[in-house]
Design a protein around this nucleic acid. Structure first.
Length: 580
RNA sequence: GCGCCCGUAGCUCAACUGGAUAGAGCAACGGCCUUCUAAGCCGUAGGUUACAGGUUCGAGUCCUGUCGGGCGCGCCA
């Protein structure tokens, strides 16, 4: 619809240009907006206001000239000039009902762009350290990321989902040691779990299962354990304990604790996300970057280009050359590469895999990390624009009016699984998807549970279920519903019908815009709007009691609404139940 | 101290990248079921868009400053 108007207005502008009303070399941007109020017609164009200055005319006068130059078109009922110089376009009925034909012709594809017709995009999201189960904070990133993936795919992009598994590094070592301590406790050695180790119950469980599997094979005396820690501050003591564990258990023994922890937690995360409706194409291991030599190669490349230099026994990346606040260490003085080094190699690898765009969804606490990754990309000669980092603000949890902590190490958190068990995966997804990512979010657990029935998702699903029921009834009454695409759409002329039609027609635009702006929440608001229009229509019209041919047309409108709701819910990753 | 994000109805959030009279849900109040699902509909009330300036035909949206909140500023990840 907007394209057709665009063509008409372009003609008008061109003719004014040839008459020297508008400077011929002026680049004119034509924007059409859906109006907020009915008195303003269906679509409004502000071009007369933006052209007023270059044309040196007052906007209303210019609008008048544009309207006069506008070719007539069967879809346009009338055109009005209003306010400071808006050109308001009123469409006629055929323009409104034209959406129905597309909906019936395209079905599940309505609103979606040609699949795989645009960019090849990789979307990396969640990527939580496998040091514990996912909590509701991760849930937000998960729901947002997957909804975004679906929106981007709906807009015609090819999307791959990836989870970057941090299966190397100190946090994992701390986890392995935490399991070891719980194991020692399980075989009655009286060591205490360090304060800054992982405290969750799941660590206790893993320790106990290792105890029953291996008995006292990995034991150590309490004195030996405590001696390694004496006189050190908390974090240093933890590092000393890690060294002790590696020393006492040997490579294989330590790997036993490490791998059990990693695998069981990662399996849990995979299952959790799968139950949440998210299926990743790739689980990318950080450790594999070491094993394949990709980290060494990246560092070598940066040393060769002079971007990495030695200072104090460590290797530093000259990120300040690329706008970062300070240089960053890539290889520690003990020879161990930092997490940053992994990430440099990881991003090199991402783009080597041929994506047009790599999107990272990070928690907002990582925002300070963006400049150095961008710096690395520049130094490696990669196109910065091919990396887009989207930040998701934390969800602040409340329970009983109190803020709930969310630290994996302390074991104090509400798991995503717990939330799903309480309100269901669909309700949780919809709830998260309503918020735009950079908005701070208050998540009241009591409210989320108590009001799960008042989650707007049910409002949308209810409209769908109602329509399904309507068709069941129609079949019971032997009403023919097989040729709805042949219905006489011109029967639909009541204002509620026009409102509903206008909403349905907008769906492709909504999908396109949501994708362009990386804002899947726009889909949820759109769906609520469609549901409102339908509920209102449903309440004041008895479809099945209507006379033919109006009844068939009303059924066609209902079927089209059902189709659009289904397609929209699918983009959020939420089901469309036939009955409720 | 410096940097990033945010501040909209009592609460939770929208607002078509600068458009016309700032909208929904929840909570409050008043109506609507012998007729296709009342998880619904219709109506009332609720606002100086944190505050102060600026930019222009036009600002919740852009710029500057102030106040308030979240996060970050490791040879952690």
């Amino acid at each position: 619809m907007k394209e057709q108007l665009h063509a008409l207005f372009s003609q008008a502008i061109d003719s004014l240009k040839s008459n020297d009303v508008i400077p011929a070399d002026h680049e004119t941007a034509l924007v059409f907006e859906r109006t907020r109020q009915k008195e303003h017609g269906d679509l409004a164009c502000n071009v007369a206001m933006t052209l007023a200055k270059p044309a040196r005319k007052n906007p209303r006068e210019l609008a008048d000239l544009i309207v006069q130059a506008l070719p007539s078109d069967p879809l346009i009922n009338k055109v009005e000039i209003a306010g400071p110089g808006f050109i308001n376009v009123f469409l006629n009925n055929e323009a409104h009902t034209s959406a129905l034909a597309s909906i019936f012709a395209q079905g599940d594809q309505f609103g979606l762009a040609e699949p795989n017709s645009k960019q090849k995009i990789m979307l990396e999201f969640v990527s939580a350290n496998p040091t514990g189960p996912l909590h509701v904070g991760h849930g937000r990133g998960a729901a947002y990321g997957d909804a975004l993936a679906r929106v981007l795919a709906a807009a015609g992009n090819t999307v791959e989902r990836e989870y970057y598994v941090n299966d190397a590094g100190r946090q994992m070592d701390i986890l392995a040691v935490s399991v070891w301590v719980r194991y020692l406790q399980a075989i009655d050695i009286n060591v205490t779990l360090p304060d800054n180790a992982y405290k969750g119950q799941y660590v206790v469980d893993m320790g106990q299962s290792l105890a029953s599997l291996h008995g006292k094979r990995y034991e150590i005396t309490r004195d030996e354990f405590e001696q390694a820690r004496t006189g050190l501050d908390d974090e240093a003591a933890l590092d000393a304990t890690i060294s002790l564990a590696k020393d006492k258990l040997g490579n294989d023994g330590f790997a036993l604790f490490f791998d059990l922890a990693l695998n069981s937690i990662l399996d849990d995360i995979k299952q959790d996300l799968s139950e949440f409706g998210i299926d990743y194409d790739t689980w990318y291991s950080e450790r594999s970057l070491f094993e394949t030599g990709k980290i060494d190669r990246a560092i070598k490349k940066l040393k060769a280009s002079g971007d990495v230099y030695e200072k104090g026994g460590a290797w530093w990346f000259r990120t300040t050359e690329y706008g970062d606040e300070k240089d960053r260490v890539v290889v520690r003085d003990n020879g161990q590469p930092t997490y940053f080094a992994s990430d440099i190699a990881y991003h090199q690898d991402k783009l080597d895999r041929g994506f047009d765009l790599a999107i990272n969804i990070w928690g907002s606490d990582h925002h300070g990390y963006i400049p150095r990754v961008k710096a690395a990309m520049q130094a490696l000669g990669l196109e910065q624009d091919k990396l887009k980092v989207l930040l998701v603000q934390f969800a602040v949890l409340y329970r009983g009016g109190e803020k709930v902590g969310m630290s994996t190490r302390s074991g104090e958190f509400v798991t995503l699984r717990e939330l799903r068990d309480d309100i269901g995966s669909d309700a949780a997804r919809f709830f998260y998807a309503q918020r735009k990512s950079e908005q701070h979010m208050d998540f009241d657990l009591d409210l989320a549970k108590a009001q799960s029935n008042e989650n707007p998702m049910y409002y949308v699903q209810y409209a769908h279920a109602r329509i399904c029921r309507l068709f069941e009834k129609a079949n019971e009454q032997k009403i023919n519903t097989s040729n709805l695409d042949q219905a006489d759409f011109s029967q639909l002329s009541k204002s509620q019908e026009i409102d509903l039609l206008a909403s349905l027609q907008r769906f492709p635009e909504v999908v396109e815009r949501a994708a362009q702006q990386f804002e899947p929440h726009q889909i949820t608001y759109y769906l609520k709007e469609v549901a409102t229009a339908y509920h209102s229509y449903y309440n004041s019209n008895k479809v099945l009691d209507a006379e033919e041919p109006l009844r068939t047309a009303m059924l066609a409108l209902s079927a089209a609404t059902k189709q659009v709701i289904r397609n929209g819910l699918n983009i959020i990753g939420v089901g469309a139940p036939e009955s409720m």
